[in-house]
Every structure is written in C-alpha cells, then in structure tokens.
C-alpha cells in the first residue's frame, strides 16, 4: 500500500499525529495518512475528528490507510476551547502578536494608555482579529491590568482566541493569574504565526 499523502509508517506516537496536523494546517483539501500500528491509527482518527474532519480507515496487510476530509471550517484545533463563545464566527483571519504591555516607545505612560485604547478599539471594532498572541511583557495585559483584561475578555466573547505564552507567564510569576484567554506554548504559537494569512505585530 503506497501513494499516501503522509507516510507515517515506522513512526511511534505522537509523531504520526504531528505530521497529520502539519499537513492539515498547510495544505487545503482531503488527504490520506498511512500508518502501521493500531495506536497511530486511533490517534490520527481522534485528532482528525476533533479537528472537524470526517475520517475513513481501510486496513490492508497490517497497515492502515486513513482518509481525512476536512469539514466546514476545519483546521488544526487548539488544545482547549479558547473562550465561552464559539471561535471564529465573526473574526478576520488576522493574528495579532503583542510583545509588551505598552504600545510603542517614547513614553511609558503614553504607551500604557495607547495599548489600552488599542485593545478597546479592537474589542469594539467591526473586524475582530481571529487570534491575539501575548508574549514577553504582553502577558501582563491578560493578568495584572484590570482594564486590558476586560477588553481581552470582550474580544474572547466575540470569538477571538487569546493565547498567552506559558514560558512568559512563568517568567513573570503570573502562571496562576491568567484571567483572559488560555495558556499556550511555543509549538502552537509558532504554528499560528507561521500559518497566519495576516500577522500584525505590536
């Protein structure tokens, strides 16, 4: 059995799922994954179903050909449901990367005011970004600052996914104080940024 789009034979979990995930993120349309053990077969199926795809498995000679057809709005899913509201409905595909709790340089005071009003404008505006990623000092916006937490929660409610870098939260000792969005990791953040059709950095 050959000719599969993703040949994951000889690979142990979690590798077959990671390759499936990569393929789903990078190339639109249906595809097939070939695996050679039941654990990989079941995991590729679990992942694809969770990602909103339909899945069919054909077994031949101890190998499994998994056919995956992305459903409406399917994509690689995040580790958790991001926010109470269902994500993405009214959002643009833009990814907004915020790496500081101030906007711009020149004056700290002005920078803090500007980031507040920027997030407020985002939360109220017509075009809600699909994803906001908070890194470095940016994680403070989802923990310490009451006003920006409120704006981020408003963004969440409108379907925006707010991701805070776990390493950064740990660094600032804020790991247990995240109040908007959810903790993410470099793997997910990297894949969001690289896969983003439009990325804005603040």
């Amino acid at each position: 059995m050959n000719g599969a789009d993703v040949d994951a034979r000889g690979l142990r979990c979690p590798e077959p799922v990671l390759r499936t995930r990569k393929r789903l993120a990078e190339t639109p349309g249906a595809f097939t994954v070939l695996v050679d053990n039941p654990a990989a077969r079941d995991n590729v199926r679990r992942f694809a179903q969770t990602s909103g795809c339909s899945v069919e498995v054909v077994e031949r000679d101890g190998e499994f050909l998994v056919s995956i057809t992305p459903g409406e709005g399917a994509g690689p899913v995040a580790a958790e449901k991001p926010c109470p509201a269902s994500a993405g409905a009214a959002c643009t595909p833009a990814v907004l990367l915020i790496t500081s709790d101030e906007l711009g340089t020149g004056s700290h005071e002005l920078g803090a005011t500007l980031i507040k009003s920027f997030l407020y404008a985002c939360a109220q505006g017509d075009d809600v970004p699909g994803t906001v990623i908070l890194m470095n000092g940016g994680v403070k916006l989802a923990t310490e600052n009451d006003e920006t937490v409120e704006h981020l929660l408003a963004l969440c409610e409108r379907g925006c996914e707010v991701l805070a870098c776990g390493t950064c939260l740990d660094y600032f000792g804020l790991a247990d104080r995240l109040r908007a969005g959810r903790v993410s990791n470099m793997y997910e953040i990297q894949s969001k940024l690289v896969g983003a059709p439009r990325m804005l950095s603040l």
Binding site: C13, A39, N43, V44, F47, T50
Partner: peptide, 11 residues
Amino acid sequence: DMAALGMVPEL
C-alpha cells in the same frame, strides 16, 4: 483534551 488531540499512547 489531549486524548482528543490524538495523544493516547499504545494501549
């Protein structure tokens, strides 16, 4: 959550 993402080891 992680089982749903296909992170189940060989059972």
